[in-house]
Design a protein around this nucleic acid. Structure first.
Length: 260
DNA sequence: ATGCCGGGCGAAGCCCGA
């Protein structure tokens, strides 16, 4: 079973690009972020025609997450727990039946948090704290799950082209990196790092300043696996070539192959 | 030090992203 995460930066603007990638990469489960469309304007038919079931948690203009699955979606729950007063569509969780096994999948669009020193950064950290608490609860079931998405966190210096250039940015703040580390310390596995040790592998390149042409990117899209999912991890990689196509997103897909 | 690019919104130019 191949599970993938892709921040599309507007599904409507990216529809041709996304459909082409879906056809060739042929993932079984896809977590999308920044769909930027409401549930009633989501291009359902276009995606369903490619063989996917849908769970969507949309919002106008900003945010918006979705889960596509070739396997049956048994249950879908929008929003992280403790969401009173949080109206951003940034989290969607579904239980999917994969060849007789129940696998929980979450599509995550973690807040950017810039600029630091503002309520945007405290929102990011409190959101991450909610995610840590939720992950801790999910781990009690001792079941396979994947927390997939745009975490807006650069975990380590080797995950950015120039660490100095990112000092002071919310994506590379010690507090942001520490909260991400808390998730790992709970026992979750960074699927990419479990399969690759080489530095300077990225999932995002800014549209500006020729970042893509100079390969100056950051690794901020992650697949975090529960122990029972990590047991089944066979491969993980980044579909870098998608960034070089017509009208690309500034992110590219990341995927993992799990033995289910 | 700021904007670079690109999307949404909505019909020009601003807000936002990372």
């Amino acid at each position: 079973m191949k599970v993938s995460s892709f921040n599309v930066n507007s599904l409507k603007a990216r529809l041709v690009n996304v459909k082409e990638w879906l056809k060739e990469a042929d993932p079984d489960i896809v977590c999308l972020q920044e769909t930027k469309c409401t549930d009633d304007t989501f291009p359902r038919g276009e995606i369903e025609d490619l063989g996917y079931n849908l769970a969507i948690h949309g919002q106008k203009t900003y945010n918006g997450v979705a889960i596509l699955s070739k396997y049956p979606i048994e249950d879908a729950t929008p929003g992280l727990p403790e969401g009173d007063g949080d109206d951003h569509a940034r989290y969607l969780e579904a239980v999917i039946s994969v060849n007789g096994s129940a696998v929980r999948i979450a599509s995550i669009y973690l807040p950017n948090g810039n600029p630091i020193g503002t309520e945007k950064f405290t929102y990011k950290l409190s959101w991450m704290e909610r995610l840590v608490r939720h992950a801790r609860n999910l781990l009690k079931y001792e079941e396979p799950f994947v927390l997939a998405g745009d975490y807006n966190v650069i975990p380590m210096p080797e995950d950015v082209y120039d660490p100095k250039a990112w000092e002071g940015d919310a994506l590379y703040q010690p507090e942001s990196r520490a909260k991400f580390r808390e998730l790992l310390n709970l026992g979750l596995t960074d699927a990419f790092r479990a399969c690759h040790t080489e530095p300077h592998r990225y999932t995002f390149w800014d549209y500006q300043a020729g970042r893509w042409q100079k390969d100056q990117g950051i690794r901020i899209d992650h697949l975090l696996l529960s122990p029972q999912a990590a047991d089944r991890l066979k491969a993980c990689d980044i579909d870098k070539d998608v960034r070089d196509r017509e009208k690309p997103s500034d992110h590219v897909p990341i995927w993992a192959e799990l033995d289910f």
